[in-house]
Amino acid sequence: MSNITTYWRVFRTFARNSLIRDMTFRSNFIIDSISSLAWVFLNVVLYLQVFRFTNSIGDHTGWGRYEFYAFFSTGLIVNALAQMFFMTNIDEFTDLIRTGGLDFLLLKPIDTQFMISLRRIEWSSLSNLAAGIIVLVYSMTRLPHLPGMGQCVLYGVYLICGVAIYYSLMITLGASTVWMGRNLTLYDFWFYITTFSRYPMEIYTGQLGRPLRFAFTFIIPVLIVVNIPARLMVRPLESQNGWLAGFALLATAASVAASRWVFLKALAGYRSASS
């Protein structure tokens, strides 16, 4: 029990220190917030155009205009959360490995992965989180049924699962720099891999689409990240949801376990940069 309070206190101090830091560089903070909002805005413009010409993404897939907006906003929320808590940290992790800065973290009587993953909280991601929530609420009110309490709770649970899967992927990519050195930046990798999670899984059809859908559901489960919470929110009654939701829990547990394993392997292979 005292263990948990220790971790909670350390986490709070991380959050506090990050906020102090952000407030000393206030103009950077504001620019970051605005520019990520601008990116969201451009995407909104694109989808507004698309829905001038069609009422649904795919034929009878169930992703009509507002369902899709709810999907889009769910993607925003998951991404904002992943960025807020983990992105900067894991990007810095690769630097820590290269420069040997990891040394100090290894000395602390507290889980090293915890320290690495949550050292900096990116408060500027709150702007995207807010944008996501606004779009979500707006699109929910436009749909025929408002979600019930249970649905909202499930949505929350699966958001966390989504963030956890993203996190596992990030930490695996970050840890692998122990062996590979650095080619592309983590951000690049990240951008390209997550493009697959940006759209509903139903769009992956046909000869090429099915294997892709399979691979990104079962091997690298990024398709689950946004799809499951969004489905449970806007299309709760579909028959597929049951097993998908069950599988999502399993995939989350497996990803987290696998990434933990990779992380520990990487630590064992860590060769502190001298001097």
Binding site: F53, T54, N55, G58, D59, N183, Y192, T195
Partner: peptide, 28 residues
């Protein structure tokens, strides 16, 4: 870096193909 980076750069196109496919299919 070049070769890898260039190939990766086409990944978003793959999803674009599927997205527009779906958009056109959804049109009446």
């Amino acid at each position: 870096d070049f070769a890898l980076g260039t190939l990766m750069r086409f990944l978003p196109i793959v999803t674009q193909i599927f997205l527009w496919d779906a958009v056109f299919q959804g049109m009446s």
